[in-house]
């Protein structure tokens, strides 16, 4: 598996995939995509990176433990539902706001944060599984 070509190309491939996964996540509300798919793509990226270059570089690149990322995602999703409670609306009711960044109108919503949370949970959990299994190869 750990051929020279694969090892050389893997970091670039992985970063491209992660970038693509973020793109898929963000466009998910209007075009095919979303947190689940984006998360799976990113998780595959880390898995490929891990197979090619070993688990340690991946853990370094991630900085946080994958399960911590996963837990953070669950927290983000849960908190995004709490916002509506302050407006006397049921848990998880979507809230929208328009934010102007550099003169561009951008729609920000709790839904977006919810989807980001889904993305993080999926990335974290599945990367954790993949890394745990890859690590055992060298034990």
């Amino acid at each position: 598996m750990r051929t020279l070509i694969f090892r050389t190309i893997a970091p670039y491939l992985a970063s491209l995939m992660v970038l693509f996964s973020v793109f898929v996540l963000l466009r998910g509300h209007n075009e095919p995509g979303g947190g689940f798919i984006g998360g799976l793509i990113a998780a595959s990226a880390f898995a490929i990176y891990g197979i090619a270059c070993g688990v340690a570089p991946v853990r370094r690149a991630l900085y946080f433990h994958p399960m911590a990322i996963s837990g953070f995602g669950l927290l983000v999703s849960g908190l995004s539902g709490v916002v509506s409670l302050f407006k006397d609306m049921p848990f998880l009711t979507g809230q929208w706001a328009e934010v102007h960044i550099l003169g561009l109108a951008v729609d920000i919503s709790t839904i977006l944060f919810f989807d980001i949370g889904v993305y993080l949970v999926v990335v974290g959990a599945i990367t954790s599984i993949a890394l745990a299994l890859e690590e055992r190869e060298h034990v």
């Binding site: 979303g34 689940f36 799976l40 999926v122 959990a125 599945i126 599984i129 745990a132 299994l133």
Partner: peptide, 17 residues
């Protein structure tokens, strides 16, 4: 189905391990 796919994958991974 979309969520079911991801969950069944998680469960499958769990069973595998």
């Amino acid at each position: 189905i979309l969520t079911a796919i991801v969950i069944s994958f998680s469960i499958f991974a769990f069973l595998l391990v």
